[in-house]
Design a protein around this nucleic acid. Sequence first.
DNA 1: ATATTGTATATATACTTTATATACAATATA
DNA 2: TATATTGTATATAAAGTATATATACAATAT
Lengths: 125, 125
Amino acid sequence: MQILISNNSKEPIYEQIYAQIKKHILTNEIQAGHSLPSMRQLAKDLDVSVITTKRAYEELEKNGFIYSVVGKGSFVSEQNNEMIKERKMKVIEEQLFTAIQNSKEIGISLTELKELLTLLYREEA
Amino acid sequence: MQILISNNSKEPIYEQIYAQIKKHILTNEIQAGHSLPSMRQLAKDLDVSVITTKRAYEELEKNGFIYSVVGKGSFVSEQNNEMIKERKMKVIEEQLFTAIQNSKEIGISLTELKELLTLLYREEA
DNA sequence: ATATTGTATATATACTTTATATACAATATA
DNA sequence: TATATTGTATATAAAGTATATATACAATAT
């Protein structure tokens, strides 16, 4: 698995690692059940501290992409897309919710809001 | 105009000032055209640096609540609620926009999105 | 001319984020 | 069981950001 980090990037190292592994998983380049490089090995390869790779792996675990077992290693989770979908669904709901709150504050009706939504949905092809 | 700041609040001083003046304006306690205390005077009253009051006034100006003129002072802007509404409208559009993008990523149709919106709108009485 | 107003620059301080070293705990395996 | 490998926890350093300041400058009023 190819992971490249750039030191002069503004993006923190742990996020670069996170993003690249996430991408590999989502594009099925690494499949469910397969093992990731150990935190230590990856840290050595990237010439970076274990804590940094751990941080990346932690985020990946928090978001359901991988799981880690002491002594064994870290593995790609079953990527039931349902879970990913649900997670994103929650985010969408929250976004809509705040938009709704703001709308109510300035007296935008549900009908108006729907119209706006339709417009934006079609606009953003 | 009554402004009180708390030093043991987590909220930065400039934000406390900002919020209170904004409230005074929105509730019409100070009316359009009327002058605010000078940055220096307010700074003295609150026992705070001019830079801090300036920062608060800057934010207020950026958001269209007041305007400042060198040598004259700072004044409450015409509060055409239209402007405030427009400003909020833009925010709402942006919120909807990102929600739409996320929706498309996981294949939520416009119809489904509208249903969700309706549900949330009514739920949040 | 002088005082009052807002503004710009350079700086100090506290807080948060990012990254680290090192010691610990659990599992695999020879 | 001994040893190596894996992930984890704690304490800490370094860099970056946010907050607040002093002081000097510029425009306006009187």
